[in-house]
Amino acid sequence: MNKTPQSIFQHSHFAHCESGVMSLMMSHHGLPLSEAMVFGLSGALIFAYIPFVKLGGMPLIAYRTRPKSIIKGLQKNLGIKMKMHTFSNPAKGSQVLDKLLEQGKIIGAQSSVFWLPYFPPEMRFHFNGHNLIIYGREKDEYLISDPVFETEQRCPVRDLERARFVKGMMAPKGLLYYPVYIPEDIDYQSILPRVIKKNARTMLKTPVPIAGVRAIRALGKSIGQLEKKDRRWAKLFLGHIVRMQEEIGTGGAGFRFIYASFLQEAGSILNNRELDIASDQMTAVGDQWREFALLAVKAIRKKKGEKINFPALQEKLYSVARAEEETYRKLLQIHFS
């Protein structure tokens, strides 16, 4: 593999951390790959609602697959090979990082958001699945390319170490990664149809209603039952859904717009008009998710004594579920020559 020096590394702004890191890293090493392509090719689109797994007292809701799955999915589907290190000892983890930087590499890393000082205070929540690129060190600071920021950042050595070694759910264990092999030719003609169909099948045919279209309906059902719950909790729950969908870097509408962008790009690579239509459908799905977010926030605004229309919110999610289902069915029907 060609070694591209740090000196020509160019930061760029993306919607999402893990797909942004991989897009930048692949492009840096000579394989131009947009963020949308990274996201779609790794098969990262999902909807998950797991009421019995709680994060900060709220049920787990996710619009993409679990952290690291973009890196792993891309490896598997494109035949890229990544070297991944985790550490039990923070000092050792920092030592290895410095050594890799000295070799001129740019390094992907997983970290907590809460302990990164360059995040605005209002964005600092305990989330351990954040990703960024470290592309150098100057004295006691690392040079950071964080995909969800417009410009390059700097982070004191001590703070980054803390952020890389937080414990708990999705603990990063100091994870560092970089590519060791990138194929010269990628056979998009066969890879794209395969990953698109596989992702659509995952969304349609989950055995339990905690993932896929069935999970969207399950969430709708839960919302319909909120009337009986404590009102303050009900409002926090609605806010939680909106945050997972919009606040966490999703490029809007819980990654549905990124995926629509991917389908469009795939359509132009394969010269397949059907994919363009599916892309438009996915955009409409995203627009519906945004309408749901607006309705949810209007419900949060309701004062004491004002009625919240939970059935309307439920109906909106059922409508989202129908639109998603149709889109995936359409994708499964596409005939790729």
């Binding site: 926090l236 939680h240 909106v242 945050r243 919009e246 606040e247 977010a293 949810a296 926030v297 949060i300």
Partner: peptide, 11 residues
């Protein structure tokens, strides 16, 4: 987006 702001501020 104001909608996002309201959800974040609520949290």
């Amino acid at each position: 987006w104001k909608v996002e702001e309201e959800a974040t501020m609520q949290a």
